[in-house]
Design a protein around this nucleic acid. Structure first.
Lengths: 152, 152
DNA sequence: TCATACTGTAATAATATCAATTACAGTTGG
DNA sequence: CCAACTGTAATTGATATTATTACAGTATGA
């Protein structure tokens, strides 16, 4: 899995958490624990898909332009990490004489395509808004002394 | 995803394809397209789980000791790659003041644990024997001029 | 209009991960 | 004893990932 997926999800949750839905790349980077340039790259991608808008110049930054309860992790996954489940490394060789060795790349490919569909189906049930309320709920629990593992 | 998963699956399918269920690390490595030492490491792991047995010394090698129609990719995944879905890289920091930044690691963790369960459920429906028959079937199709994408 | 505070983007450097290779001890069959 | 194996660890080399730097472009407001 691509770590840009994590940065994208974290950024969206953070923006959804803000009253005005806004933050600069520097603020987001500090919260995510990475470099502002990396945040700008990831959010630039989310902008092209309409999930955030940006304003350059002084006082600018990023603003959430989607409904957090409608955007799912599947959307983010497709945007940032599609195809990342399959390893880059490949076994076998189509030119090989052996039936097994020559077919393995195709077979693995279809296995991982199916796996990716499963993953997307799972992610499509988790929304940015859902993650945020989970966090807020967890925080309340902690305040009440009833903190426990967070379950989605 | 770990590429050792691919090596393990490929090796098991190859052994299942052999009449006597046997091959040396050198033969397997040639078929998988990697180094024999790497094959030995992976199959050493499968041996501990009882899927293959090994014989050292001259004329030795690996032999399949499981029923290929009973071993699923979920078994292999758990053996070789458990936990590999979650990226090593982590956003946020539990010590942080912000509710979002301090909770994100836990939340991501539960998201990826759920994702891994989904993946295992999918893999549990694919067996080594199933992959092998798929390959043999595909080969027959190709021979009959009806080759197409392999679907599992 | 100028300084300031941002984004966009590319290039580079630092680091971590992954795979290949080498090496050698231990085992077995002939 | 020799030849052909596995088991395992160490090293090297290749690749991927992340951080950092740099700077052009843009908006704001004094």
């Amino acid at each position: 899995m691509n770590s840009e997926f994590i940065i994208a999800v974290h950024s969206l949750v953070l923006l959804a958490h803000r009253e005005d839905g806004m933050a600069s790349s520097e603020e987001i980077a500090a919260n995510v624990c990475t470099h502002p340039a990396r945040v700008r790259k990831v959010l630039g991608c989310l902008r092209k898909l309409g999930y955030v808008s940006t304003r350059e110049g002084s006082g600018g930054g990023y603003r959430l332009t989607c409904n957090p309860t409608e955007v799912t992790l599947a959307d983010v996954y497709r945007a940032m990490s599609a195809g990342s489940l399959m390893p880059n490394w490949c076994s076998g060789d189509p030119e090989m004489d052996c039936m097994v060795g020559s077919s393995m790349q195709d077979v693995m490919n279809s296995v991982f395509c199916g796996a990716e569909k499963q993953l997307e189906a799972y992610f499509s049930n988790i929304t940015i808004g859902g993650m945020l309320s989970n966090i807020e709920q967890g925080q309340l629990d902690a305040a009440g002394g009833r903190a426990g593992p967070i379950i989605i």
